[in-house]
Computed example of a mutant assay.
Amino acid sequence: MRYAIMLHYPERSGDELGDALAEGQSAFQAYARDLDQAGVLVSGEVWQPSSATTTLTAADGTLRVQDGPFADTHDQLGGQFVVDVPDLDAALAWAEKAPSVWWGPVEVRPSATYVQSGTWVPTA
């Protein structure tokens, strides 16, 4: 079963993080390596700051393009790891090892489908 482990945390610049930036990068590299060595890592992505986001909405029938994220929150979605594990308990066990669990919420969500070589594949 595929799960997305989504990492939410306060965005801070490299200057604001100081030495913690290198420590955080090292911690995430180790986490990704552990997922990969366990054979459960499908993908992992760290995203650019939310200020680089462009959001599209058309709920009222009119397309709107907005610079920046749609949600105005303290924590931003900063990246995700997709894992393929037997069940939710296994996904939660990996999620609790994510370095950012100490800085913000880590959301675990099962996939319903994914695309492989242009074909939609149901996960259940």
Rank of each mutant, 00 (worst) to 15 (best):
residue 13 S to L: 07
residue 109 R to I: 01
residue 1 M to C: 10
residue 45 E to W: 13
residue 82 V to L: 01
residue 62 T to G: 06
residue 113 T to H: 11
residue 43 S to W: 10
residue 62 T to V: 11
residue 23 E to C: 10
residue 45 E to N: 14
residue 117 S to L: 08
residue 47 W to G: 13
residue 34 D to P: 00
residue 18 G to I: 12
residue 88 L to H: 09
residue 114 Y to G: 01
residue 22 A to G: 07
residue 101 V to H: 05
residue 70 F to H: 06
residue 105 P to D: 14
residue 40 V to H: 00
residue 69 P to C: 01
residue 93 A to D: 09
residue 56 L to G: 07
residue 97 K to T: 07
residue 115 V to E: 03
residue 3 Y to Q: 09
residue 78 G to T: 00
residue 69 P to L: 00
residue 111 S to T: 07
residue 101 V to K: 11
residue 84 D to M: 12
residue 12 R to K: 14
residue 59 A to V: 12
residue 10 P to R: 12
residue 16 E to C: 08
residue 124 A to N: 10
residue 121 V to D: 08
residue 17 L to P: 09
residue 52 A to G: 15
residue 30 A to F: 02
residue 85 V to F: 03
residue 87 D to R: 00
residue 70 F to L: 12
residue 5 I to L: 05
residue 66 Q to R: 08
residue 84 D to A: 14
residue 4 A to G: 14
residue 52 A to V: 09
residue 31 Y to H: 04
residue 4 A to E: 12
residue 25 Q to E: 12
residue 50 S to W: 10
residue 49 P to G: 08
residue 106 V to D: 03
residue 57 T to R: 15
residue 94 W to E: 02
residue 64 R to I: 05
residue 14 G to T: 01
residue 123 T to N: 10
residue 70 F to M: 04
residue 42 V to Y: 08
residue 79 G to I: 00
residue 116 Q to H: 15
residue 76 Q to R: 11
residue 64 R to Q: 10
residue 51 S to P: 09
residue 33 R to M: 05
residue 12 R to V: 09
residue 7 L to H: 06
residue 72 D to T: 04
residue 96 E to D: 02
residue 102 W to H: 15
residue 100 S to G: 07
residue 43 S to N: 11
residue 87 D to A: 04
residue 102 W to I: 05
residue 105 P to W: 13
residue 76 Q to N: 08
residue 80 Q to Y: 09
residue 45 E to R: 13
residue 30 A to I: 00
residue 4 A to P: 12
residue 113 T to V: 08
residue 28 F to I: 05
residue 22 A to Q: 13
residue 45 E to Y: 14
residue 60 D to W: 00
residue 55 T to N: 13
residue 63 L to H: 10
residue 121 V to H: 05
residue 63 L to S: 13
residue 107 E to A: 04
residue 77 L to N: 10
residue 35 L to G: 03
residue 62 T to N: 07
residue 7 L to E: 14
residue 73 T to G: 14
residue 101 V to R: 09
residue 22 A to F: 05
residue 66 Q to L: 05
residue 98 A to W: 07
residue 39 G to E: 12
residue 27 A to C: 07
residue 38 A to L: 04
residue 68 G to M: 01
residue 59 A to K: 11
residue 88 L to V: 11
residue 119 T to I: 09
residue 13 S to Q: 04
residue 67 D to Q: 02
residue 80 Q to G: 14
residue 41 L to E: 07
residue 8 H to Q: 10
residue 27 A to H: 00
residue 51 S to M: 08
residue 12 R to Q: 14
residue 92 L to H: 13
residue 37 Q to V: 02
residue 7 L to Y: 13
residue 103 W to I: 03
residue 86 P to Q: 14
residue 46 V to R: 15
residue 109 R to N: 00
residue 49 P to W: 01
residue 36 D to W: 08
residue 42 V to K: 12
residue 124 A to G: 12
residue 98 A to N: 11
